[in-house]
Design a protein around this nucleic acid. Sequence first.
DNA 1: ATAAAATGCTACAAAAAGGTAGTAATTATG
DNA 2: CATAATTACTACCTTTTTGTAGCATTTTAT
Lengths: 138, 138
Amino acid sequence: MILGKTTEYALSVLAYMATRSQDMYPAELLHRELKIPRHYLRRLLTDLSKKGFIASSRGRNGGFVFARELSMINFAQVIDAMEGEEAMNICLLGFTACIVDKPCAMHDLWSDARSKMAETLKNTSLADLREKYLNDKG
Amino acid sequence: MILGKTTEYALSVLAYMATRSQDMYPAELLHRELKIPRHYLRRLLTDLSKKGFIASSRGRNGGFVFARELSMINFAQVIDAMEGEEAMNICLLGFTACIVDKPCAMHDLWSDARSKMAETLKNTSLADLREKYLNDKG
DNA sequence: ATAAAATGCTACAAAAAGGTAGTAATTATG
DNA sequence: CATAATTACTACCTTTTTGTAGCATTTTAT
């Protein structure tokens, strides 16, 4: 598994919210639309609130909205928040092989590909996603 | 986690074997050198045998050796074998978001970075690793 | 032969991830 | 004020992954 299921759910939710134009997204709606297990989703949403990506409002007509500008949320941030900082910087040969022999022999060979991936994730915000989505549609 | 622990172990083992020059690698040696839990490693090695990367010989003086030329084993193959074919081709927004809206809005933006990563993994063999390792040392 | 050094196999335990259920707290609306 | 709609919290269950234990089997060296 490249990313955990929970991280995929998180990206799904944020991507969905970023590409629509409602002013409130209740858990139940997201559950229906994205087919993410109801209760599990609820916990995920709470978690995403605590992490500052979205904000919740309780009570009738409550739900979730973005807590910051779409342009201020990029994919690397989300993945970091969900998987831990190391996830993207990990040595593909495992720490052991990497540390034992000092600089992991593959770091050079891979750093290009890896850093390109990392840059792409860092440089792509939810605003970019929204823009692309709306353009592709119209 | 980007790759499962077991996959990292597998890469560690193969990388270790590829960069040394013994003609036999018993599990116990790999356990000592790589600090991978003894019994878990044993199962992993059996698994790697069944998958055709290495071959085992039992009995005294037994152990593991590569089952094919180093140049015939690349990193993509190992990752595929350990994580399943889909691991590298997965849609980062999760299948749901991807399918609901037909072509996932991000596929274009990411396909570059992702395919570069995939190519690198496919084009890098254990022979390349060995060569680089021995050059860096000497 | 026998003992030592290996792998193969099977069953189980522990930890992490994923998923379910229900109650409490909060808020808008009639 | 009462009710309905909503999030917050807590506890528990299931599945997958990781790790442990031990015995059976194979091979080599003495």
